[in-house]
Design a protein around this nucleic acid. Structure first.
Lengths: 233, 233
DNA sequence: ACCTGAACACCGTTCAAGT
DNA sequence: ACCTGAACACCGTTCAAGT
């Protein structure tokens, strides 16, 4: 653990920074937190470190690797739950995972493309498998595939809910406005061509986001526990 | 002077192309098919249309909208299954959806960020709701949320399986090589810190991709059917 | 009214050259 | 040996100006 002497104004550092892998990651997270993933570019990070972009390539292979490193670092914020019934622990752990990714807008995109594989992710993964095997009493096959599926769903959900930064700030369309747009599109869809969608648009758009996430999690767990793996030949 | 017969491949169009929204979309799909989503940029599309990039903005608001339009266009390839038991139809439809997105590498990323909402997607959505309500006999709430969840999982799965084009061609790391890397990472993870993962690495990595997808689909359907919605207050 | 050349403000990555 | 200035090859988007 590093003794965190917070640089409170970030300008009170006259000497040039160490320029290590960790320092690069920290600066990247800082930019992301303040201005979004979109601004956390190689060039921007290099500028913040008062050097040229080429220097970063001594420590980081490319942008994808930088984002992956940032993701695992940030996953460290997850609080592991304890002493709860196994279902509750699974739900809390996966929700915590999702929330971290949502918090760092846009990181979800990286997570879906370049699978996170750092130590923190592995710890969460391990705990989920444990809960499934010892708590739910399902087979290692179901438990491991289930844990994987749960993290995939959490990441995808986070990607949907993250504000999409297209321009300097928003798309000019907030997540809420976009929901309204979807609402309108669903309603406008000709009843003749999509009768079920038209008839049940209310049902589709009902419920608070938390209720919906709760249901999603429960459906995942129920499905994972109830579905045996195909027989391998 | 010899009358130079133009190379017939795509140069046999002496008049300038119409330059409509549809034409832009078609050219974009063509580039994507040949060189990947990464190459299907505004500038590149404009160049292919022998005009400046500014001209595209008369018909398309921005890059995100272009990709969304392309996605819905491409979704037209989906074959709707018929006259099968409802579970089978759900599985085939969702698999077809996923396969289309996988086929256009990288499109999955757009799909997760900017929710596809074209007529084709709505048609698939409608059919899924129908199958759930009339086939499975579940509530409209479960049916609509379930259909939404299924498409989310399919999109996320496609995003994972799509080759990530980081450079001109590959990342220098194919999907297979990456799986090997993950395998190695899982194995290398200290048994002391992640004992369950270490003990069940084989189970995690077992099974052919199709078997795994099959299991994922069945787990989704089982969970959706078995999980009632929370009571709305 | 419709279209677009040219400019603005950026990117990632490489490599020859410096210390 | 380690680092980086400068270059290469691109981006998305805007807007004043042309037809």
């Amino acid at each position: 653990m590093v003794e965190s002497s917070e640089p409170r104004s970030r300008r009170d550092r006259p000497a040039k920074p160490p320029l290590s892998r960790q320092w690069i990651i920290d600066v990247t997270i800082d930019i992301m937190r303040r201005e979004g993933l979109k601004k956390a570019t190689m060039r921007r990070v290099a500028a913040e470190l008062e050097t040229g972009p080429a220097s970063l390539y001594v420590y980081i292979r490319n942008t994808a690797e930088l984002h992956a490193a940032v993701l695992d670092e940030v996953l460290g914020e997850i609080q592991m739950p304890h002493d709860r019934p196994w279902q509750e622990e699974v739900e809390q752990l996966v929700t915590a995972y999702r929330d971290v990714i949502v918090r760092y807008h846009g990181l979800a995109r990286s997570a879906l493309v370049q699978r996170p594989s750092g130590p923190t992710l592995f710890a969460v993964f391990d705990r989920l498998i444990e809960l499934f095997i010892d708590g739910a009493g399902i087979s290692p096959g179901q438990a491991t595939w289930g844990a994987d599926l749960l993290l995939l769903v959490a990441t995808a959900n986070a990607a949907e809910h993250a504000p999409h930064e297209t321009g300097d700030t928003d798309t000019g369309m907030s997540a809420d406005e976009e929901l309204d747009a979807l609402f309108a599109a669903v309603r406008a869809s000709t009843s003749a061509k999509t009768p079920y969608l038209a008839a049940h648009a209310d049902a589709l758009l009902a419920g608070a986001p938390e209720q919906r996430w709760e249901w999603t999690l429960r459906a995942q767990i129920a499905g994972i526990v109830a579905t045996p793996q195909p027989v391998t030949q």
